[in-house]
Write a protein that binds this DNA or RNA. Structure first.
Length: 858
DNA sequence: ACCGGCTAAGTTTTT
DNA sequence: CTTAGCCGGT
């Protein structure tokens, strides 16, 4: 669990009081409710300013969550609202859980009664279920995930005879998603954009996709908000009901809101109109305004939101909405977030009070200064100056490496050194820009026997086995769920292939019935071959049986029965691939997680919205993740590798988003730096392998944007890249002194020189690689050869051998040519043994050096 | 219906 | 260099 340290560090009475009324404030501070004690003046103002719109600009590590939860506690304890009258939205389930947890600590058990604390989507979904019929849905509608969406769209493309090679379903899904993020119903999509896909058919496809969703009784994630917005607009009476209910609205991570979320908040935050409610079905004045005003601007710039301006001349009254966010941490523009929302807050919510939280309780002075200086290069920001009363601490280090392997090696050694100094691995994180960077670290850590944990990756409910299992349950619960039926009809293999499914589709379409009903009918005919027919008949019978059992069996038991009887469990038991065991474990976990829900229906309604990745293991391990998934986390020691032009900032972002993209990348750097409490260590490599081929890179421009006074340039410890002795010699630091605070270490110079060179391979390397080879490699004396570069480097390295021997000291229980299994690399054969260090030829992953504790006998 | 080989593409991620 | 997805052969 993430430590949030700020409360304990604060003394009871804030050191700085506002100039005016200092004494009175001090007196109040000591008298006020105990949950207010320990807040600094700004935090306290953010908590106590209950009336009218409030924007809390909360920089990294300034106690944002604390303010949110304390504010809720304050509202409740002041009797301003009951728990059910507070709408509190977050983006992730994790954030929602964290808030509930902290509220619980603050208030005791009272949290149970906060029904409207949740993610945008779960609350939107909740509201939509209440009014499902207004969206042509039933209240038990299914929430589709991306995979379902894409499959559905593929069918539509096929039906329209559109070449899905040229116009991939994924692309259309992305477009539709983008439109929904911007709050656009099919009729509102600017015609220029609608025409972009498949020679003008984009808009039509969007419309028919929506129609299909209704038939399937399904909604996608975007609909959960979009349909809310539509219902609110078309039924002012309903909107008014919610406006009256929610006395207070709190929003977390406001900088990440997209247009749809903004519209949704905007509607809910208006004071309930005093005019008579409009009649059902009558169109609200706002709803049409959008299209005519800005037909084509949307393509180029953020569309203005004309439909948000007060309907007539009357002044819109805004209720008590409090948005907390940090424009400097907006890193999700590419998925529809509008930094503009936060930048425009004061304009959108007239009379808004803006409170800045600038006191950082997390990082040391140097780290904070470096992060602040970097982000100051952005133009589109509201501007905050983070300050700390913590020590200066260590300077941020910038280390150049010859290539990405050396970078990984250097960081590996640095981590081992930190470990020797008593640092917990849990307090060490490596934050990368792109996930492909992780591989080298994983390889390295496996070789070192360094425990690590990858954060992110496929989420629990996105895994194939979970989605398959859910599909079975969905078909039981809702026989009309064609997408679920199609997903599992031949999983495990039942001999019901494409031909059969196509046949069922034809049947279903002709009679306008769901696939399942078509299946039931078809098995009564002799349209199918006997084998397929029998298979299908069995399947239909099984579902009938399961549905009957549902009445008399606990839903968890039913799930287990379904998984077993369908042969699904068996399918994975027989599977010998590397991750089969994990999948079975996930299935168990799924069944376990069902216990929290009353019944199957309840489970299915929430599963797609609240299920997230498995709770991490409690072991001490280094965390490896992307900068994006690091947002909201903090660690004592943070490694930031790969600060090179093209990678970070990402070339693609620059190409596609231009200056805005560059600023978002810079914010990403700011996020990365501010994750660190005590040490931030930046790395760049001169050569990096991208898509298999080595290319020479130049250091990131962000390095130039760091303040020299807070940064120290060091040489890689991962084996000397350039000149030098290759160890931890003190002379290295003497050398550093000469270069002072400018970026002109030998490595840096070489990197700069490489800018002008055509990236000639032999040019830059002569000094570096060979010297290193002399120092480290005992196995090879041949010249550089990039083809076998990595494998040769991984030859028996004395230094590694010593390190390993020191740390474990046992001899291996494996023998040559043993068949072994590795969590990550799968099955392989031992080809070499060196102490507890094995060289294994993996069937799939190739030859790797691995510490024996990482493998088991196959 | 299934498997194997080929081709093309290749950030970031939540719900 | 990988990997996913598609097509063609058995």
């Amino acid at each position: 669990m993430i430590r949030m340290t700020e409360p304990s560090k604060i003394t009871a009475v804030p050191d700085h009081q506002p100039a005016a009324g200092g004494i009175a404030a001090r007196a109040r501070a000591s008298v006020g409710p105990k949950y207010l004690s320990g807040l600094n003046p700004e935090q306290r103002e953010a908590v106590e300013t209950l009336d009218g719109p409030v924007l809390v600009l909360a920089g990294a590590g300034t106690g944002k969550t604390r303010v949110l939860t304390t504010r809720i506690a304050h509202i409740l304890s002041q009797g301003r609202a009951r728990p059910a009258e507070i709408l509190s939205v977050t983006f992730t389930n994790k954030a929602a859980r964290e808030m509930k947890h902290r509220l619980g600590q603050m208030l005791g058990h009272a949290v149970e009664g906060m029904p409207w604390l949740g993610t945008f989507h779960s609350i939107g979904g909740r509201i939509l279920r209440f009014h499902a019929e207004l969206a042509q849905l039933k209240s038990n509608f299914t929430v589709l995930d991306v995979d379902d969406q894409v499959r559905l769209l593929k069918q539509l493309l096929q039906a329209e005879n559109i070449d899905d090679k040229r116009w991939p379903a994924r692309m259309l899904a992305g477009l539709i998603d983008g439109w929904k993020n911007r709050g656009l119903m099919p009729s509102q999509v600017p015609s220029g954009e609608a025409a972009m896909f498949a020679n003008g058919k984009g808009g039509k496809l969007y419309a028919s996709y929506q129609e299909r969703l209704k038939i399937l009784n399904a909604a996608d994630f975007g609909d959960l908000l979009l349909e809310n917005i539509r219902i609110f607009r078309e039924h002012p009476d309903i909107l008014r009901q919610y406006q009256q209910r929610f006395k207070f609205i709190l929003v977390d991570e406001y900088q990440d809101t997209n247009v749809a979320q903004y519209l949704w908040l905007r509607l809910l935050s208006q004071a309930p109109s005093s005019t008579s409610p409009r009649l059902r079905g009558e169109v609200a004045p706002q709803s049409d305004a959008g299209e005519e005003d800005s037909p084509q601007t949307a393509l180029v710039e953020t569309p203005p939101h004309p439909d948000l301006l007060p309907a007539s001349g009357e002044k819109e009254k805004t209720k008590n909405i409090c948005c907390v966010g940090d424009d400097d941490q907006s890193i999700y523009g590419w998925r529809g977030a509008e930094v503009d929302n936060i930048l425009r807050f004061e304009h959108d919510f007239p009379g808004a009070k803006v409170i800045r939280l600038e006191r950082n309780y997390r990082s040391t002075g140097h780290i904070l200064a470096a992060a602040s200086h970097l982000i100051a290069h952005n133009e589109g920001r509201l501007g905050k100056t983070l300050r700390t009363e913590d020590v200066e601490g260590e300077k941020v280090t910038v280390t150049g490496s010859w290539d990405s392997e050396e970078e990984a090696r250097g960081i590996g050694e640095e981590i081992e050194q930190l470990q020797r100094q008593g640092e917990k691995l849990n307090e060490i994180a490596i934050l990368v820009r792109a996930s492909y960077q992780m591989r080298e670290f994983e390889d390295r850590f496996v070789t070192l026997g360094l425990p690590y944990r990858v954060i992110g990756g496929p989420r629990f409910y996105e895994r194939a086995e979970i989605r398959d299992a859910l599909a079975y349950l969905r078909v039981i619960n809702s026989p009309a769920d064609d997408l679920a039926f199609e997903r599992i009809v031949n999983v495990p293999k039942r001999g019901l292939g494409d031909a059969t499914v196509q046949m069922l589709h034809d049947h279903a379409r002709k009679r306008r019935v769901p696939l399942f009903d078509a299946a039931r009918a078809v098995v009564e005919t002799d349209e199918l071959k006997p084998k397929a027919r029998g298979s299908l008949r069995d399947l239909v019978a099984q579902f009938d049986r399961w549905r009957a059992q549902r009445e008399v069996t606990a839903h968890t038991d039913l799930a287990q029965i379904v998984l077993d009887e369908s042969g699904y469990t068996e399918m994975w038991q027989k599977d010998r691939s590397a991750d089969a065991a994990g999948r079975l474990e996930n299935l168990k976990e799924l069944v376990r997680s069902m216990e929290e829900f009353e019944n199957l229906q309840g489970f299915l309604e929430h599963i797609s919205l609240v299920m997230d990745r498995e709770g991490g293991a409690e072991d001490d391990a280094v965390s490896l993740m992307t900068l994006h998934s690091a947002k909201g986390l903090e660690f004592d020691n943070v490694f930031l590798p790969g600060w090179e032009e093209g990678l970070f900032p990402s070339q693609r972002t620059l190409d596609e988003q231009g200056r805005a993209g560059l600023e978002e990348e810079r914010r990403l750097g700011h996020v990365g730096l501010t994750r660190a409490r005590r040490r931030a260590m930046i790395y760049f490599a001169t050569n990096r392998r991208i898509h298999g081929t080595w290319s020479t890179t130049i250091p990131s421009r962000f390095l130039d944007e760091l303040p020299a006074a807070n940064v120290e340039i060091t040489e890689s410890k991962g084996g000397s890249a350039w000149g030098g002795t290759g160890g931890y010699g003190a002379s290295r630091f003497d050398d550093m002194e000469a270069f002072g605070s400018s970026y002109s270490t030998p490595g840096w110079q070489r990197a700069q020189a490489n800018r002008n060179r055509g990236g000639g391979r032999n040019g830059g390397r002569s000094g570096g690689f060979e010297e290193e080879a002399a120092t480290f490699s005992s196995s090879s004396s041949s010249g550089p050869d990039f083809g076998s570069f990595s494998s040769r480097r991984r030859g028996p390295l004395t230094i590694e051998g010593e390190l390993i021997a020191k740390s474990t000291g046992t001899t291996s229980e494996f023998s040559l040519s043993d068949r072994v299994f590795h969590q990550k690399f799968g099955y392989g054969r031992v080809t070499k043994i060196d102490g507890n260090k094995l060289t294994i030829a993996f069937d799939k992953a190739g030859e790797k050096k691995v510490v024996d504790s990482f493998v088991q006998r196959a």
